[in-house]
């Protein structure tokens, strides 16, 4: 089984961090994986995206062009990648920042106001982790296992004080329902 995930948003929304967290979780679970960021000046305030592939088999191309899961954290990302999602795939939409609805009818759509939820948690920069929490809820093949271990790996020792708030953001997303 192979899951191809594309996370997209503005630079600064923690797109790469969310991807890295998923990658560490997969590493802990003994899966094959790849993590590929967009890079360069476009990351500074422009759009950023990140391809994560989690698989039971060796990963071929690390570039996700047809995601099974799309995390759209702003409107340009949804506009750009909505059509690329495989039929039957899942789109997560930050409904605080994206007002429109998903047009396609052959994919699953999960709306979550992750930016607002993060603000309510007093952690406005963690909309990414709120959305990841929701992803764990909806995508059983990824699931909520090993979250704390993966968080320890992805949060550097220098920033260890941010562990709890990241965990709360994930739990918030996991428990959210419309």
């Amino acid at each position: 089984m192979t899951t191809q995930i594309l996370i997209a948003g503005f630079g600064g929304q923690g797109v790469l961090f969310a991807g890295k967290f998923l990658a560490y979780k997969a590493l802990i679970e003994g899966k094959q994986l790849s993590w590929l960021p967009s890079y360069g000046p476009e990351m500074r305030g422009g759009t950023a995206n990140c391809s994560v592939i989690i698989s039971d088999d060796p990963v071929g191309s690390p570039i996700v062009s047809k995601p099974d899961i799309l995390m759209a954290m702003n409107l340009p990302s949804l506009d750009k990648y909505e059509d690329a999602v495989v039929p039957g795939g899942t789109v997560f939409v930050d409904s605080t920042l994206i007002e429109r609805k998903v047009k396609r009818t052959d994919i699953n759509v999960v709306y979550i106001p992750s930016t607002k939820l993060a603000k309510d948690l007093n952690a406005p920069t963690l909309a990414n982790m709120v959305m990841v929490g929701k992803l764990f809820k909806e995508c059983k093949e990824i699931g909520m296992d090993n979250v704390e271990q993966a968080l320890h790996k992805v949060i550097s020792a220098r920033k260890a004080n941010l562990f709890d708030v990241n965990l709360s953001a994930i739990q918030c997303g996991f428990n959210y329902s419309e």
């Binding site: 890295k20 990658a23 590493l27 094959q32 994986l33 790849s34 993590w35 590929l36 960021p37 890079y39 990963v59 690390p62 570039i63």
Partner: peptide, 10 residues
């Protein structure tokens, strides 16, 4: 190339 340099894998 840029992808090999930028990508993370185990």
């Amino acid at each position: 190339d840029g992808t090999m340099g930028q990508m993370m894998e185990p």
